[in-house]
Each structure stands twice: as C-alpha cells, then as structure tokens.
Simulated scan of single mutants.
Amino acid sequence: MDVTAVRTYVAVVEAEQFQEAAIDLGVTPQAVSKRVAALERELGVQLFTRDARGAKPTIDGQAFLPHARAFLDAAERAMASVRPGHRALRVDVIGRRLSLAGLLRGFHRAHPDTELDVVTLFDSASALSAVRDGVIDATFRAVTTPVLRLPPGVEAAPVLDEPLHLFTGPDHEFADAPAIRPDQLAGHRIWMPGNTPGTEWTAYYDELAAAFGFTVDAVGPDFGIEHLLDTIADSTTLSTFVSEQTPLVWPAGHDLRRIPLTDPTPVYPHALVWRPDNPHPALTVLRDHLTSAYPGRPRDGIWTPSWTENPAGPRTGPQP
C-alpha cells in the first residue's frame, strides 16, 4: 500500500477539504485528488463524499481511518529506525484549528529555521505512548486528569492557561451580556457533541459543570464545527464553550457571540509533554520558548479543576 496515498487520505480527513489538505501537504489539489483516487481503486471503495462545504469520509472511509493511522505510525517507526542524520521536530496537537497550533506557529515565527512536523493524534493514550516510544517528540495535553496519567519517564510543564468564552446565537438570553459569571449558567444546557468519554477535555468540562450547576450535553453525532455553528446560531437555548484563542470564522448572518466568563474565569490547563532523554536539539528550543512565555498561574480569579497539574515545575511520571 502506498504510504503517500494513505497519508494524503488522512490529511483530507483532518482538513475536511482537498484544497486545505493540499496546503498542509505542500502539493497541488490535483495531486491530492489523484492520490485519493488511486487509493480508492486499490481498496475498491469510495472514501469520501464531496460537496460545496468540503469532503466527508464515507462509512468505508470512517472504518479505514484508524487502520490508516496505525499503518502510518508503523511506517514512520520503520523509517525512523534507520533514518540517519537530522529530522523535523515532530509535535502533536489535538487539532490544527485550536490555540495550540497557534503556539507552534508563534514558535515557528521566532525560530523559522527549525523544521516542524505537526501531527494530530486524537487519542490521548496514543499520544502519550508515542512520546514514550519516541515516535513523536512532544504533545500538548491536560495532564493528571482522572483519565490521563503520564507514563514512566515522561515529563510535563504548563505552557498555556486558556480562558473560556461562552458561545451563543443572537437570540440566546446571554447574547448581549458583556461578560457572565459561571454560576449564572446553573440550570443551563451547554451543547458539546465533541465531548468523548475518556478524554481529558471531557474530564475538565464534567468537573466544571459539577462546580457551577450546569449540564454538558454531548448528545448527537459530532458533524464538525460548521454544523455546531449553524445549530448554535439558530437556537435560543443552546450554547457551547470555546477557548479564548481558538480562531473561528462564521457566516455574517449567524451573528454569533463570544462572551467572556469572569469571577472566576475558567481556564483550560495546556501542558507540553516530552521525554527528558529525547536528544532532538530543537526540543530544548521549543521547551525554552514555551515555558519562558508562560506567565505562571495566578492564585486568584480563575477556576481550574481539582486535578490540575501544579505549575511550579515539571512532573515526572511514576516509575515502575
């Protein structure tokens, strides 16, 4: 099976558009289409449905996705085991549209000569195992949650405490508020279809909901950010959370609102996770860049979950 074709297929799934995948891969959209078509011929199935809004995996495409990622991981390990000399610093982010990708873009602007290989691993356990095994050099995660523990020999340090905003349509009762307190959400339903059981972000929002008396509703399939924006825009009761630095663009007619949460401000605790014995020279540069820019967590005026990592210094995972 063609590794390049499989990597292209995964890139289209993540980007949700052939053109965006082409930009990520540094090739033309025509090259992306040809690679996907060749893979579809080899497999004997259609992997995507395409319309004006982008590309979505078919049922066969969804079934193939975890195996494709495992295939690429195995291929990368095989090549890395014999690859001499320098390689790009490989860093995992949960999503390319999230604020963590912005942190890496800031690092790249400050160190343009450092080659980066940005990957997206949805599953936290896989990301931490990849750090432990040296498949990737670092990942961004919220550590020491009830569901996420550092493996032996792995360390973490806080790099970003990101405030949350409430995200509503124009007819929601909080739409015109300049800011609200979290306790004003008591009794409300916050729609978050991307909350997957067993993930660190679900653990975060579950504790936030328990602390301030609202309900997190994860009902319904997660059709992606566009569907979420469309639904929130038309609802008088549904709202969701977005992080302060998450870039979002929506049609002008939606008139969506981002409302800061204050007194206290819930912040999501992002940490950089790495192996201290990783010899990649750019890893130290990345760590220094991120930790030097981290202002430290204030003691007052914010909310973090009870399991949040102490930001005083890195934590080493439990030793066997």
Rank of each mutant, 00 (worst) to 15 (best):
H188A: 13
H86I: 03
T284K: 02
T49R: 15
A271S: 14
G26K: 02
L65G: 08
G296V: 03
L290E: 03
D234G: 13
G26M: 03
L150P: 03
P276T: 14
G301T: 05
G26V: 03
H172L: 05
D183N: 12
P264W: 01
R299C: 12
M79T: 10
G134K: 03
A252L: 14
E173L: 08
E226I: 04
G95A: 11
V91I: 03
A211Y: 00
A74D: 15
D263V: 02
G194C: 07
Q319I: 05
I225A: 13
A209S: 11
P305L: 02
P264I: 00
V93I: 12
P163K: 08
A312P: 08
A70W: 10
A70M: 12
R297A: 10
D217A: 10
R287P: 09
R90S: 11
V159S: 05
R77C: 12
G54E: 08
F214K: 14
T246C: 09
T262Q: 13
V159K: 01
A282S: 08
E40N: 04
L229Y: 04
V36S: 09
R258Q: 14
G220S: 00
R149Y: 06
G134L: 03
I232M: 07
P269H: 00
M1E: 11
T4A: 15
M79R: 15
P146K: 05
A211F: 04
L72K: 05
A252H: 06
L39I: 00
R189C: 13
I23E: 15
E16A: 09
D206Q: 14
P197D: 11
H165D: 13
